[in-house]
């Protein structure tokens, strides 16, 4: 229909299809799902809706809270004291049993890992990034955090202590980065744009203002 040449691969997939063969976990999930539906326990739509709900969180939720904390010391105090209530103040529904905010200071940088699986504050950050779930990060973050951070491009001087938080049980962690220099006078919305997902995990620093 056209002599347009498609050799520039515009429509090539960005990665190989990975759903041609089921993993053991996927096979088990599909079998369980079939049983729940056939047994009348849940409908396919209820299962789909729950998965959609699970993926509703996004790093913007945590960024909004931290930006508010940067401009409002009273809110910051409330967020450090009770992160779930502070989320609710901004209309964010946190489904985690317990959320804790840890503040970076000039003396201490904080980072989070779940060495046992992939515990993560999904309500405030969405689904965890692939690196967070990887065995490499989970084993190395507790063993050589400074090296891991350097690989992320974050060089913490030895004068600053590093605290690694293993999110191994019931609490979920939000790191509050320090407000960057040169952001005086920026609006809450502009500040929120500087707060990336990885900076809330402690694997990055906020974006420097232009």
């Amino acid at each position: 229909m056209s002599d347009h040449d498609h050799d520039h691969d515009d429509h090539a997939p960005t990665r190989e299809d990975d759903d041609l063969e089921l993993t053991e976990g996927e096979a088990r999930f599909l079998a369980l799902k079939s049983l729940l539906i056939e047994g009348g326990v849940m409908t396919a739509d209820e299962i789909r809706a729950r998965m959609e709900f699970n993926e509703r969180g996004s790093p913007h939720q945590a960024a909004r809270m931290i930006a508010r904390a940067w401009v409002d010391p009273d809110y910051k105090a409330r967020m450090l004291a009770d992160t779930k209530s502070a989320a609710a103040e901004l209309g964010i529904e946190a489904t985690e049993a317990a959320l804790v905010t840890i503040e970076n200071t000039p003396e201490r940088h904080n980072m989070v890992v779940c060495t046992l699986c992939s515990c993560y504050p999904r309500s405030l950050l969405g689904e965890p990034p692939a690196f967070y779930v990887s065995k490499a990060y989970r084993s190395r973050a507790v063993r050589e955090p400074r090296k891991v951070l350097r690989e992320f491009g974050v060089d913490i001087p030895d004068a600053v202590d590093i605290a690694v938080h293993d999110s191994n049980a019931d609490l979920r962690y939000v790191i509050m980065p320090m407000r960057p220099q040169g952001t005086e006078g920026m609006s809450e919305e502009e500040l929120a744009a500087l707060i990336t997902r990885d900076s809330v995990v402690g694997c990055a620093l906020p974006v420097e203002p232009a």
């Binding site: 201490r108 507790v142 063993r143 050589e144 955090p145 400074r146 090296k147 030895d158 004068a159 600053v160 202590d161 590093i162 605290a163 690694v164 938080h165 293993d166 999110s167 191994n168 049980a169 019931d170 609490l171």
Partner: peptide
């Protein structure tokens, strides 16, 4: 939450003496 010195967890830890790990037990 228990705070441990990294030097008390890993004998050959390479970092600052004040580096710590905190974990729920």
């Amino acid at each position: 939450r228990v705070q441990l010195k990294q030097d008390d967890i890993w004998p050959d830890y390479d970092g600052a003496p004040g580096d710590v790990l905190e974990i729920e037990i």
